[in-house]
Amino acid sequence: MQFKLGVTKNILNVFTFISESGVKDPRIDRAIGVCKKAVSAFSYSWKKRRDMTEVQAELGLPQHLLISESPTRWGSRQKMIERFLEQEKAITRVLGADKKTRHLVPTWQDLEVLEATNKAVKPLQDFTDALSGESYVSVSCIKPVLHLFKTSLLLPEEEDLELTKTIKANIMRYLESKYCDLEKEELLDMATLLDPRFRTTYIDASKLEVVKKRAVSEISALCNSTTEEAGPSAVQENTPPKKKMTLGAFFKKSAPSTMLHPQSEKTKIETELATYLLIPDIEPDTDPLEWWKLHQPNFPRLSLLAKKYLSVPATSAPSERVFSVGGGIVTCNRACLKPDVVDRLIFLAKNV
């Protein structure tokens, strides 16, 4: 199942994403450029850092160091801007006292742009940290995330500046366009249905019956394929050994047959799906994979489809963490490691 997601990556690299989504603004580029140059001036001068500490104490500002942007660390640019705005008065005084760095003092227009940009991006920072999880974040989170962005995190507020509103609107427009085609819509609807935390909450009511029918059809196909793969030999192997007859077995055989015709496989699947949709709501912090592992005996057919869809990761964060682990293992001093050895070391690093 090929499906490019990466919501977390897009939001964490939100400034790169802003230019990709058509929000590229020379004011933002200039303000961020001024911010980076000013931070660099303190990074390369211990005297300015010393003066900064003195001014911070005089102005009653927190004794914080400035943060430099790191291309490989998601969210570092937003943190750099936030810290820059926090220490703006001390930065202006220290830079303004030196003729060589006086031109780096930000103007009020630059500060206004940085504040507007930071206000649009800041609410996403803590959220994306949670969304970057490996074990509990599945593709089923995408539709709820988009709904949360639209109704809360990226909802324009009355006190927002026009630039802030523009950034929020364009981020939302880009994300909606990213998942608007039919194939992705069908996958997201099915994955959301199979997540016990969401089920039908974020599925369009007009599409619900279609999604249910498709779920029944896919479960039938999965059950048939599982039976065919098992074959008659597997049935013989799984046949329990013959046990001694008990008294209850005789009553069971002689009991009058009042049952109706046995249900068809399709009816059993539909009943199972209807029962699943009627279960009480569960806690939002519940791990859906753990939930299905626990309730698989109750929904043996539906759990097959849940394994198929909920195994799709929602973000590229887990795979990129694996790359980082690999970079720490295959160093300059260990460049002769064989590929299979590297695979084992990475596996042990991530699972032990």
Rank of each mutant, 00 (worst) to 15 (best):
F3E: 13
I11H: 04
V14W: 06
T16L: 12
R27P: 14
R30D: 14
A31K: 00
S43Q: 10
S45D: 06
R50N: 11
M52S: 05
M52K: 02
Q63E: 14
L66R: 00
P71I: 10
R73L: 07
Q87H: 01
E88V: 10
T92M: 09
D98R: 01
L104W: 00
V105E: 01
L114A: 06
T117C: 11
V121T: 00
Q125M: 09
E134G: 06
K143Y: 08
L146D: 10
L148G: 05
L148F: 13
F149T: 10
T151E: 12
E162Q: 04
L163Y: 04
T164V: 11
M172N: 10
L175M: 13
D181G: 07
E183F: 03
E186M: 11
L188P: 06
D189W: 03
R197T: 08
Y202L: 03
K212M: 07
E218Q: 07
A221Q: 07
S233Q: 09
A234L: 12
T239S: 15
T239R: 11
T239Y: 10
L247I: 06
L260K: 13
T267P: 08
L278A: 09
D281Y: 02
E283A: 11
E290Q: 14
W292D: 08
F299V: 06
K307H: 12
S311V: 09
S324C: 10
G327I: 05
G327M: 05
L337C: 03
I346H: 08
F347E: 04
